[in-house]
């Protein structure tokens, strides 16, 4: 049994890694430089703070989202991502600091801001009592669109979401992926300038995730500005031009995915598994081989720029691990380094 699990792990990390590497945008998106002109900033936050009674959800953060970029909030549960998203969505009052969305103040112009946003919440809040098409219809009506306009857009959106043949189906029996795509389609009915996606692919199977990524990528190509929260590192690497890592209401790091990896991790990681209970003892003998050594309950991680070379060194010391995986560093390594390994909730 352990062998199978381990085998699956190896395959898994391999599969996750390689495609990412090829597809990654290798540098900052042209329009997204941090010093970009103010006029192209769709969202601008300075000292943005959110309290729920005594609890500090967001603790004075600064960020800008430029027009046309895909911007990510990464962080463990409870880091303050969703609170930030709700403030941007003008449905949650700002406790302190300033926030401008589309150049307007959410406290004053909530409805005007929302008129130009598309929102895809963490939990699908589709109207269970209506059909697929009716969900798009009534949502469009909330924006004050005429039925003719909605019908035209609904046809396009159902095609976009690959739900044409489910047009008149009730929402309830749809699969998780279908509901998610419908929620995204619904968020596009008003042709928003800015689309907010809160954990868009949580709970979906791999096929559904990849399809969604494809759809989101297309939106980006068409110039829609995306703000995404996620705790999937591969998703962030796939979709985001630029991201911030949040932890306990603060921003722990900011940059393009590749930059962050370069800044906070090494090029490669060598994972060694020793017999249960001997990780620390063995790790002690590996001093000096890697730039950084991390001991986990079940593995030892060596952060190095050349995993193969490190592997040779390990063998030279005379240690023979039960299994060895060498891989590229990922955003996950950065994430765990910055936000720690212990569970947050």
């Amino acid at each position: 049994m352990p062998a199978i699990v381990q085998g699956a792990r190896v395959v898994c990390s391999g599969a996750r890694l390689n495609p990412d590497e090829d597809e990654l945008p290798n540098n900052l998106h042209p329009g997204t430089s941090v010093n970009g002109s103010m006029s192209s900033s769709l969202v601008e936050a300075r000292g943005l703070t959110k309290y729920f009674d005594e609890l500090v959800a967001v603790d004075g953060i600064d960020f800008d989202v430029a027009e046309g970029e895909a911007f990510g909030f990464l962080g463990p549960n409870g880091a303050g991502k969703s609170s930030t998203m709700r403030m941007i969505g003008a449905v949650s009052p700002v406790t302190a600091g300033t926030l401008a969305v589309l150049g307007m103040d959410p406290a004053v112009d909530g409805p005007k801001i929302r008129a130009r946003l598309g929102v895809v919440p963490q939990e699908d809040n589709l109207d269970q009592e209506l059909s697929v098409y009716e969900n798009l219809l009534i949502y469009g009506r909330y924006f004050g669109l005429s039925k003719n306009v909605i019908d035209e857009r609904a046809a396009e959106l159902l095609q976009f979401a690959q739900l044409e043949d489910r047009r008149d189906s009730p929402v309830e029996p749809l699969s998780g992926g279908m509901k998610r795509r419908l929620t995204i389609a619904r968020g596009l009915i008003n042709q928003p300038d800015l689309l907010l996606l809160d954990e868009p692919t949580t709970g979906l199977d791999p096929q559904a995730r990849h399809l969604l990524w494809d759809r989101l990528y297309r939106l980006k190509q068409q110039g829609v500005t995306l703000i995404i929260t996620t705790h999937y590192m591969d998703e962030a690497e796939q979709l985001c031009d630029r991201l911030v890592i949040m932890d306990k209401g603060n921003i722990a790091a900011e940059g393009a995915p590749r930059d962050l990896i370069e800044r906070y991790s090494t090029r490669e990681v060598l994972e060694l598994r020793f017999p249960v209970g001997t990780q620390a003892v063995n790790a002690a003998r590996l001093d000096g081989i890697a730039k950084k050594t991390e001991v986990l309950p079940d593995r030892v991680l060596l952060y190095t720029d050349d995993a193969d070379f490190a592997h040779t060194k390990v063998l030279e010391v005379g240690l023979i691990p039960e299994s060895t995986v060498s891989r590229r560093s990922t955003l996950e390594d950065v994430f765990l380094r910055l936000t720690g390994r212990s569970l947050v909730d």
């Binding site: 409805p111 008129a115 909330y142 924006f143 004050g144 669109l145 976009f160 042709q191 939106l219 068409q222």
Partner: peptide
């Protein structure tokens, strides 16, 4: 794959979209 690509889901200029008056 191309079905959606040709669809213009987002009009090109931000200014072109007036806020629908009746709702406000």
């Amino acid at each position: 794959p191309d079905a959606a690509g040709t669809v213009d889901l987002v009009s090109s200029t931000l200014a072109a979209r007036a806020v629908p008056a009746p709702v406000l």
